[in-house]
Design a protein around this nucleic acid. Sequence first.
DNA 1: ATCCTACAATGGACATTGTCTAAGTCAAGT
DNA 2: ACTTGACTTAGACAATGTCCATTGTAGGAT
Lengths: 138, 138
Amino acid sequence: MSDLLERLRGRGWRMTAQRRVVAEVLDGDHVHLTADEVHARAVSRLPEISRATVYNTLGEMVSLGEVLEVSTDRRAKRYDPNAHRPHHHLVCAQCGAIRDVHPSGNPLADLSADERYGFTVSDVEVTYRGICPNCSAA
Amino acid sequence: MSDLLERLRGRGWRMTAQRRVVAEVLDGDHVHLTADEVHARAVSRLPEISRATVYNTLGEMVSLGEVLEVSTDRRAKRYDPNAHRPHHHLVCAQCGAIRDVHPSGNPLADLSADERYGFTVSDVEVTYRGICPNCSAA
DNA sequence: ATCCTACAATGGACATTGTCTAAGTCAAGT
DNA sequence: ACTTGACTTAGACAATGTCCATTGTAGGAT
């Protein structure tokens, strides 16, 4: 089940109970938990795990490129284990639900040279906003 | 000079010294100050202005649609007085410098129906990241 | 010009998210 | 089983933002 855990193990990561739990909590599709949500779920499996460890572990997974940081709102960062398929995000403006999406165009090509102001542009991040089916029904 | 101030006045905004100063500080092109930066500059003109007032005033200008909130990093929100020309942002990953940009494509059209998961998509926000000329020289 | 009153400003407490540190603990190689 | 350096912990701290009770004031009414 845990592809993420497998990949991390294969990189000589020192495996600890805490790291295992964090990786397991984070695994899955369309998963975008905040650090404190990860911590809350981790605590239910390993009650003595500390907040700092969760933050550290998430940070390491990001550095290793196994997890992406997502900032769809300006509250907490969210962590996306689906790091190996490039994608953007669709966010419900009301309830905050997030889906991974794969738009067809390439926005990098849409930025002309004179709109780059001499920057070396390397990355683009696209966030779609709207209302999810649940919220528009209510 | 202050278009922003003019527009606000024209909406029956109750004009106070504090609001005037905030509007003046914020006016201009490629301006993207954080709330505390606005506060710092406001204080130099009106020493007794409080932080809460700056936050409130910025929030009201955003509600009135005269100023945009921009979240290019996950630290402080930034406020962009250029609310009447739709645009996206180009951010230096190193020093945080921000330029307004106007890409040619329409990313909304790039999101197919089956990638919308039933959402009513109304808006898209694009952030380009790269290194600015200053930082790449250094 | 002065008075009223609703709206605005103040300052300080509080909340949330995240970082840091010093000390204790443990995984994994030998 | 030892040893060691990496990991974990708890809690203090920092940055950003919100809230509330109190005080002040802009602008209309008199």
